[in-house]
Design a protein around this nucleic acid. Sequence first.
DNA 1: TCGAATAGTTACCGACCGGTCACACCTATG
DNA 2: CATAGGTGTGACCGGTCGGTAACTATTCGA
Lengths: 199, 199
Amino acid sequence: MQARQAPRDRIVSTACELFRQHGIRGIGVDAIAEAAETNKMTLYRHFGSKDDLICEALRFTSEKAAAFWDQLEASHPNDPMAQLHSWVEARAQCLADNQYGCDLANAAVELKEQGHPAHAVIENFKITQQRRLEKLCRDAGVSEPELLSDTLSMLMEGAQVSKLATGSEGPSMRFLRACQAAIASFRQPVKSAAETVSA
Amino acid sequence: MQARQAPRDRIVSTACELFRQHGIRGIGVDAIAEAAETNKMTLYRHFGSKDDLICEALRFTSEKAAAFWDQLEASHPNDPMAQLHSWVEARAQCLADNQYGCDLANAAVELKEQGHPAHAVIENFKITQQRRLEKLCRDAGVSEPELLSDTLSMLMEGAQVSKLATGSEGPSMRFLRACQAAIASFRQPVKSAAETVSA
DNA sequence: TCGAATAGTTACCGACCGGTCACACCTATG
DNA sequence: CATAGGTGTGACCGGTCGGTAACTATTCGA
């Protein structure tokens, strides 16, 4: 039996879970503290405000996502095209497993007050993801890496919100095929040595 | 000077606006009534509850969107491929104009309690839009109309949430080009009469 | 073993939430 | 002019929100 996590860690991971299930505005700090088997006073000793906790929870989620990229690179070393397909398949799997969409994107929808500290966390996360995806596309040698990576980004975000709005029978059902078709349409045509030089 | 709208209509359109700006959970009925230049009691005489008002506001927005399709068909009669491109351009324009994304999709993100009456409105709207888009793709004679329409749906949803999360410099910047590339990749190759028959 | 830090408990605060009440008002139509 | 129906006003309800105070219990290292 493992020693119990520290209260702070329990609060963060519980907050992640409850924010995902009920929405950030849909759950109160008291309920979070209770679900984390602690109390509101301890929560406020670790986090100055609910907004602080929101940021910390989003950071926590985004760090877990960052680990996924290392794993991806290790799975197909020196084969960016295989990594790209692996990325798509992993996103499709995540889409099938998770009924709540991307926590960071949902937070962006929910927290409209501009200047909210969470915006910086969200933007930083999304931009990082997009940069990594773009690098992958570039390394894979597709014809328009920026356009492909943005296409895949939009397909991914769209699939998640579409699943929320329309259910799993909607467009998100064809997310995997849509991504694969997009990648295929941007693959460099096989060129002869002469063409490669002239281009 | 036009006669003032009836209180009920003012409440609905004001609610649409404030829900869009602050989120459904981010604005109270009192503030809506005040912004509509009326009061909470009148609001509750027309709508049984806030949830009722939410549904009515979403219905109002979705009806405005429905009118767009007639307009689209009239602009390029009997030319579904031109209508499809026109649809993409209109969505791109809407994306550029509107900083809050799709109200219906945002509502789906925000209202996670299952069984909320708004879900039926959202699902009905989204499914209707998707069916019309799919019909357009089919009429345009692309090779895989279902896959293309789902791709375009996901690109559209993704562009909106991506703009919320990453700002207008992110993937949504290339929404138009991404859609056009997707359509191009699904265009039927020109076939000879013999090929058409043998297929 | 002592002391300091951390965690738990209870009660509380003011603000706001969705929703209702009783009552005064206005206007339009008979 | 009278009456009726929609409208405006302000007070009020119970509940919940984010956040705090004061005090006790626990843990753990010096």
